[in-house]
């Protein structure tokens, strides 16, 4: 510290001060840097990693097909899961104990059993229900009837398993979003004479979206990778396809790396998209607290 005595002047120059030494941080950075370089070296010179094979299979037609199935499964199961989640969340907040109970049972069961088990179950649903039909319930006459074995392909089983499981998680996310909306918003909308449905659609859900979107983005990114579980029922997505190829040519590690590269590409693209979607739903919500904004008001040009 520098003590002054008496009246002094300060130089009118921008401050350009020397930072104190941080030896601990420098040592840690040096260590991390060395570890990275060493890791990269061992990977590059390792002859067991067949980089030529990896490059050759990166754009392979079968891999591309698997990639496409992975994208389809992710988008469809997230869309259906979100729809199921909204329905279940609205049911959980309903006044009817039967609706609340049904929704609670749904989330309880599908969050309480492993997704892997659910996928295998849906794939083998024909063992429990050999036929599906539309008609009179309780063994009445049927209008149309399908064999479960024709209806349940690996793709539909995967879609059912992923979407219904996702719906249970989305229900919790949507419910938290709806509950985050100030109850005064509902009252203001009701006092204008809006119906329950209008209050939900026009006032509550748009505001709940701000809270719902970030975890939904995370769920989407997680779902891109979760689709690989479908390989247990041979779902023809990215991992299944990679496995089929390496069972033929024994390039196990190379094909796992090919699949991993594509998973990373997908999740990176999804993360960037998530960033822009989140910005879109920030509309009307500004980072500045009221007190700061009040002080800034003289600079507000008030254009309308």
């Amino acid at each position: 510290m520098t003590k002054i005595s008496g009246a002094v002047e300060a130089p009118e120059l921008p401050i350009d001060a020397v930072r104190p030494p941080r030896p601990g941080r420098w040592a840690a950075a040096l260590l991390a840097g060395f570890a990275l370089v060493w890791l990269a070296y061992t990977i590059i010179v390792n002859e067991n990693l067949h980089w030529d094979v990896i490059v050759a299979y990166l754009g392979d037609g079968r891999i591309m097909g698997g990639l496409w199935v992975t994208i389809q499964l992710t988008v469809l199961s997230m869309a259906i899961g979100l729809a199921l989640g909204i329905v279940a969340a609205v049911m959980q907040l309903s006044g009817s104990p039967v609706l609340r109970g049904a929704a609670a049972l749904y989330t309880w069961f599908f969050r309480g059993t492993p997704l892997l088990v659910q996928l295998i179950f849906w794939f083998n649903i024909g063992l429990v229900f050999p036929t599906f039909g539309i008609g009179v319930p309780f063994d009445g006459p049927k209008l149309v009837e399908w064999q479960a074995n024709e209806l349940i392909t690996p793709f539909t089983a995967a879609l059912l398993g992923l979407a219904i499981n996702e719906g249970a998680y989305m229900a919790e996310i949507v419910r938290a979003g709806i509950r985050s909306v100030d109850p005064g918003q509902r009252e203001a909308a009701e006092s204008l004479g809006m119906s329950h449905r209008q209050v939900l659609r026009r006032v509550v859900l748009p505001q709940a979206m701000r809270v719902i979107i970030p975890p939904t983005g995370n769920q989407f990114i997680s779902m891109l990778k979760t689709t690989s579980m479908v390989s247990v029922i041979a779902g023809a997505e990215l991992l299944t396809v990679a496995q089929r190829i390496y069972l033929g040519n024994f390039e196990v590690i190379a094909l796992l790396i090919v699949a991993s590269i594509w998973y990373i590409v997908l999740t990176t693209i999804a993360s960037i998209a998530q960033h822009f979607v989140e910005k879109r739903f920030e509309r009307g919500h500004h980072a500045l607290p009221a007190r700061v904004r009040r002080n800034l008001r003289p600079f507000d040009r008030g254009s309308a």
């Binding site: 100030d182 005064g184 918003q185 009252e187 203001a188 909308a189 009701e190 006092s191 204008l192 004479g193 809006m194 119906s195 329950h196 006032v203 748009p206 505001q207 509309r283 009307g284 919500h285």
Partner: peptide, 26 residues
């Protein structure tokens, strides 16, 4: 019925202590 209640509320304006404007609309 809910619809009739909405009908009654249309004729009664209410202003709240904490405004409760819809923040996502201008």
């Amino acid at each position: 019925a809910p619809a009739e209640l909405c009908r009654q509320r249309q004729d009664i304006g209410m202003v709240f202590q904490r405004f409760h404007l819809f923040p996502h609309r201008t």
